[in-house]
Simulated scan of single mutants.
Amino acid sequence: MSNKAPVTYEVRTPVFDIDRVVSELAAVRHQWRGGRQRSTEPGGRELPSREAVSEIMAGLRGALFPMRLGPVELRQESEDFYVGHTLDLALHSLYTQVRLELMYVARYEGKERENIDQQALQIVRSFSRSLPDIRSLLDSDVIAAYQGDPAARSVDEVLLCYPGILALIHHRIAHCLYQLGVPLLARIAAELAHAQTGIDIHPGASIGTGFFIDHGTGVVIGETAIIGANVRIYQAVTLGAKRFPADADGTLQKGLPRHPVVEDEVVIYAGATVLGRVTIGRGAVIGGNVWITQDVPAGSHVTQAGSLQQGRTVHP
Rank of each mutant, 00 (worst) to 15 (best):
D139M: 04
E73D: 10
S140E: 15
G44H: 11
E79K: 15
Q310D: 08
L184D: 07
G210D: 08
L166Y: 03
A189E: 01
I227W: 09
G70F: 06
G281Y: 09
S39W: 10
G110L: 03
V15S: 05
V278K: 04
M67F: 00
V124M: 00
R50A: 05
I233S: 08
T217L: 02
L185Q: 06
I233P: 14
G283H: 07
R36L: 12
P6M: 11
R187D: 05
H315D: 02
A90S: 15
L192A: 05
K254H: 04
P42E: 02
V219L: 00
R75S: 01
H301R: 14
S128Q: 06
D149A: 00
G43H: 08
V219Y: 06
A195L: 11
G240R: 14
D249N: 13
A174Y: 06
E73R: 15
S93G: 05
G35T: 05
V231H: 10
I188P: 10
Q122G: 01
D141F: 01
W32N: 12
A106Y: 00
E109A: 01
P14M: 14
R75A: 01
A190N: 13
G222I: 07
D141E: 10
L60W: 09
Y234M: 10
V274R: 13
H194N: 09
I18Y: 03
A174P: 14
A241I: 04
G148E: 07
T8F: 01
E263P: 06
R12T: 13
H215R: 15
G228R: 13
I221E: 09
H259S: 08
A236L: 03
G311Q: 11
L184I: 06
R243E: 07
S2G: 05
Y178K: 07
G306E: 03
Y146Q: 13
S49M: 09
V231Q: 11
L25I: 04
R61L: 04
C161K: 12
L47N: 02
N3S: 13
S23Q: 05
S128T: 02
F212D: 13
L89E: 12
Y162L: 02
L138I: 03
P260R: 15
A236V: 09
D19E: 13
R113P: 00
A190K: 12
L184H: 02
A186P: 15
Q235C: 02
E191Y: 04
T251N: 03
R125V: 06
P132Q: 07
V237Q: 04
S300W: 00
A225E: 04
R75C: 02
D149S: 10
K4H: 02
A229F: 11
A27R: 13
W32A: 04
D295A: 03
Y104R: 13
E265K: 14
V22M: 11
D117G: 01
G181H: 03
S140Y: 03
T13Q: 05
Q309E: 11
A151Q: 11
R68D: 08
V15K: 14
